[in-house]
């Protein structure tokens, strides 16, 4: 019996996800995130990265998706039937694709909402300091409405807001989307520091494989709702197929227009 390996922090086992009762999107996905690790989930547009993250965070149901097979365990506890606020209380926070800041709230109010699940006002102040320490740019923006700051700053607000919940693990969905390479680097560096200094585990969904593989320790490659490859970050970045099919594949212009369509669809469905 090989039982020496420590229990992973997060363990997704063979999950199947169906949208609207008929659209099968994930077809048996398994992945693991070790305690305090950074793992990246790579794949082209439509591969199923966001769906995987939402299955973990419980946000899936708001889009009429459902985990119909398999299990998701966090610290040994099954979480795939829990709602998002329970999942956040267990210590998992998702930073959604496309940032999703509260546009009419100020930057500081945005951050404070992140502490909703924790009632202790005292430590909230300290956590705010921590967020401003990692994102010094936000200090001078604290009183601005979040709708009026730059895209990079919004991404920082979204990550900072998640941090306010004191998560054990963050699920980052394409934080590089729509940002200039310099900013992407800045944000990824901060994510790396958060991981090292605060011990936050990270599951990072990305199309920008080059960047993601630089911060991650381990990677999974997704295609069409399945994991087609996994290995440590170094091995994956040296894999010839990956180089050809994924590292080169970043049709930015095309990606953007597709996203716009998707966001539009999401806006129209209100109550969830």
């Amino acid at each position: 019996m090989a039982s020496a390996a420590p229990r992973p922090l997060l363990s997704v086992s063979n999950i199947e996800v169906i949208y609207d009762h008929v659209i099968l999107v994930l077809k048996g996905v398994s992945l693991q995130v070790p305690e305090g690790g950074i793992v990246t989930l790579l794949g082209a547009n439509g591969a199923g990265k966001s769906t995987t993250l939402k299955a973990i965070s419980g946000l899936l149901r708001t889009e009429r998706g459902e985990v119909t097979k398999g299990t998701i365990e966090f610290q040994g506890r099954a979480i795939h039937r829990q709602n998002p606020s329970e999942v956040v209380k267990h210590g998992i926070v998702q930073v959604m694709e496309g940032r999703h800041v509260f546009e009419h709230l100020t930057v500081e109010e945005n951050l404070l909402t992140g502490a909703y699940t924790r009632r202790n006002g005292h430590s909230t102040k300290k956590d705010l300091e921590v967020v401003y320490h990692y994102f010094p740019r936000l200090v001078e923006r604290r009183g601005f409405k979040a709708g009026y700051i730059s895209g990079g700053e919004q991404q920082m607000v979204a990550i900072g807001r998640a941090l306010m919940a004191r998560p054990k693990m963050m699920l980052l969905d394409e934080p590089s989307m729509g940002l200039a390479p310099m900013l992407v680097k800045e944000i990824f560096d901060i994510v790396g520091r958060l991981h090292r200094e605060e011990g936050v585990a990270v599951l990072l969904a990305e199309q920008n494989a080059t960047m993601a593989l630089q911060v991650a320790q381990h990677g999974y490659v997704m295609e069409n709702g399945r994991i087609v490859l996994d290995g440590d970050a170094k091995t994956i970045s040296e894999n010839e197929d990956i180089k050809e099919f994924y590292l080169g594949l970043t049709g930015v212009g095309q990606r953007k227009s597709y996203r716009d369509v998707k966001h539009y669809r999401r806006r129209k469905r209100w109550l969830s």
């Binding site: 708001t62 959604m96 999703h100 009419h104 009632r119």
Partner: peptide, 24 residues
């Protein structure tokens, strides 16, 4: 108030509000 702020957050973007654990 904390709840008031959460209410405004939900009004702005209910999905994001869910994602940080605000129970609708």
């Amino acid at each position: 108030t904390r709840i008031g702020r959460a209410l405004r957050a939900v009004a702005d973007d209910h999905e994001a509000a869910l994602s940080i654990g605000i129970p609708l």
